[in-house]
Simulated scan of single mutants.
Amino acid sequence: MFETPTAPMDKFLQQQQVLQRLSEDLLQAEEAVREAHETATHEENIAENKYDTLGLEAAYLATGQARRAAAIRQALARWRQFRPLPYDAGKGIQLGALVCLVDAEDRQQRLFLGPDGGSMQLVSGAQIVQVISTDAPLGRALLGRCEGDEVSVQVAPKRLQFEVLRVL
């Protein structure tokens, strides 16, 4: 009937990939904070008149980058504490589930429900796995569902429908 994923989807390996990616993102964000701070405080960027705003703009940028770095640190902490449990058909899909969906055009999609998502894509064998949180509309719609269930979500003007093929 429907094809199931051939590559094993290991939750621990998926979690390690997320932690690696978040660590890389944090390094980039911290470097951006340093650069913006240096620009904001550099003596050549001291305002000479009210229209000279480079230093001020760099300070705003440094503040935004610092907030981004703090959010990544929080996500890292949540993912480090996260312990995905094996799928329990009695409870249905829960946080930590690896899910394979199929849409009306027979396209498969693999999802990993984590404590934080944010459009991160991972690679598992030859498969792409999208990380989403249970705060995302599709993540919320999947909670409690089981293999064979239909799931639908409203995305802008369209209603998307999926069938849950497999859950790990």
Rank of each mutant, 00 (worst) to 15 (best):
L98H: 05
L142H: 14
Q121V: 13
D25P: 02
L101G: 13
E35V: 13
T6H: 00
A29H: 02
A70T: 12
A71C: 07
M9K: 00
Y87K: 04
S23M: 00
G118M: 00
L98Q: 04
A77R: 08
T41F: 07
L26P: 06
E3W: 01
R80T: 14
C100N: 01
L19Q: 06
R80M: 07
A104S: 13
A75Q: 03
D116Y: 03
Q28G: 12
K11E: 08
L54T: 14
G55D: 01
P8K: 04
T39V: 06
R166C: 07
A58V: 15
W79V: 09
A141M: 06
V151Y: 12
R67C: 11
P8A: 04
L122R: 03
F112K: 00
P115T: 00
G125N: 02
A104F: 08
S23L: 09
A71Q: 14
L85R: 13
A75H: 09
E163W: 01
L85A: 13
L56P: 06
V153T: 10
E163S: 15
R34L: 11
D88L: 04
P8R: 05
W79C: 09
G114D: 01
E44C: 08
S23P: 08
T53E: 13
L165Q: 03
A104Q: 12
L19P: 09
Q20N: 08
Q20G: 08
A36N: 09
G148H: 11
A47M: 12
P157T: 05
L142V: 11
Q16G: 14
I128M: 01
G139T: 09
I128S: 00
G139H: 08
E24I: 07
E3M: 07
F82G: 01
T134L: 03
R110W: 06
C100Y: 01
A75L: 05
L76S: 02
R21H: 12
R73N: 11
D88V: 09
V102E: 10
I128W: 01
A66W: 03
G148E: 12
A126W: 08
A62K: 12
V131L: 05
G92P: 04
S23H: 10
F2C: 07
V153E: 14
G96I: 11
Q17L: 06
L13E: 09
T41K: 03
S152L: 10
R34C: 05
L26R: 10
L54R: 13
E3V: 06
A156Y: 03
Q65M: 14
D52C: 12
Q65T: 11
P157W: 04
V153P: 00
L95F: 15
E44M: 13
V131R: 08
L56N: 11
Q28M: 15
Q127E: 13
E35W: 14
Q20Y: 06
E3D: 08
G114M: 04
G64W: 10
D103A: 05
Q161W: 14
D135E: 13
V18I: 11
E3Y: 02
A156W: 03
A75W: 01
V167R: 06
E3I: 02
D149V: 07
L111F: 06
V129W: 01
Q74G: 06
Q15T: 11
L95P: 03
R159A: 11
I93W: 09
T63D: 15
G64H: 15
D149K: 02
I72D: 07
M9V: 07
S152P: 06
A69G: 11
A156G: 04
A32F: 04
